[in-house]
């Protein structure tokens, strides 16, 4: 039964792995994968020898780490509360509405956010002004930029991720609730002892799988919102690779960075897999 997937993966995923050789080359496209000049780890050192390398990697980790954590918590909690809505019609209605922002591309959303967050007449600052607060330059202030990235990302994506938790909720057997009721458990206790444990497994799975993106902080979003004012807090691996690529189409560096990201993800995934196995006795895959 595994055969078709294995064969297709071999052709379309494993075969291209040969291209990882580019990471160790001064790659000229026309020379083919194996006839280029080998440069060892030059492409990697180019990335790490930048004076701002640490800052860029740290930004990436913080932004994407927070996105993963809140990207789990928010849909999880939202699904729990949505589950408590008694009217099925209203439930579906809300579920559909929160799904909408997923379809707006960042090219459009970027412009809207710049307007909403503007320190001169933006919606948010006008609202803050009612409370006598001074306007804040949200997208030009290193203290605010990362939180803004997280919040706007969550707003756009949480409706989509909620679907997984809703599906898992459906998988919890009703008999468990019936039995709990017989034992005299109230609603809160039922949620605490049945619903949440029932969702735990899938939460761990989604969380661990999300680690494969730990060094992808969300290029489209950041690219459309960042600016020189917030390079300190907003420049991430992908934006820097993009700027390098724009300048010189440097394939070697791009591939090296990709490989580095994969390695970090792989190590984290293996670690998380072992932890889940040992402490939760749950084999994710």
């Amino acid at each position: 039964m595994l055969l078709p997937a294995v064969l297709l993966a071999l052709v379309f995923n494993y075969l291209p792995f040969a291209g990882l050789a580019i990471a160790f080359q001064d790659f000229k496209p026309w020379k083919g994968l194996f006839d280029n000049t080998w440069v060892g780890f030059d492409n990697f050192s180019e990335m790490f020898s930048r004076p701002d390398a640490l800052q860029v990697i740290l930004n990436t980790l913080v932004i994407s780490g927070l996105k993963i954590v809140f990207g789990l918590i928010v849909p999880f909690v939202f699904a729990l509360f949505l589950n408590e809505v008694l009217s099925r019609g209203l439930q579906r209605f809300i579920q559909t509405l929160v799904f909408l922002p997923y379809f707006i591309s960042w090219v459009i959303l970027g412009g809207i956010m710049i307007d909403i967050l503007s320190p001169s007449g933006g919606l948010l600052n006008n609202a803050l002004g009612v409370f006598g607060l001074k306007p804040i330059f949200f997208l030009g202030d290193n203290n605010w930029f990362q939180p803004m990235l997280i919040v706007t990302h969550l707003w756009k994506e949480f409706g989509y991720s909620t679907v997984i938790f809703l599906a898992a909720l459906m998988g919890i057997s009703p008999q468990l609730y019936e039995a709990a009721e017989v034992d005299g458990a109230n609603r809160v206790q039922q949620v605490w002892h049945i619903t949440i444990p029932g969702l735990l497994a899938i939460t761990i799975v989604v969380g661990v799988l999300a680690l494969s993106n730990i060094l992808n902080a969300g290029f489209d979003q950041i690219f459309n919102l960042y600016n020189p004012m917030v390079y300190q807090s907003g420049d991430v691996i992908d934006t820097f690779v993009y700027r390098v690529g724009l300048l010189s189409g440097n394939f070697g560096l791009g591939t090296a960075v990709g490989l580095f990201k994969s390695l970090v993800s792989m190590i984290l995934i293996i670690g998380a897999y072992k932890l889940a196995d040992r402490f939760a006795h749950y084999r994710i895959f």
């Binding site: 995923n13 075969l15 291209p16 792995f17 040969a18 291209g19 990882l20 580019i22 496209p29 994968l33 494969s212 394939f251 791009g254 591939t255 990709g258 490989l259 994969s262 993800s265 792989m266 995934i269």
Partner: peptide, 8 residues
């Protein structure tokens, strides 16, 4: 987790 990239 791993990808050969666009070219290959």
């Amino acid at each position: 987790v791993f990808s050969g990239g666009l070219i290959p």
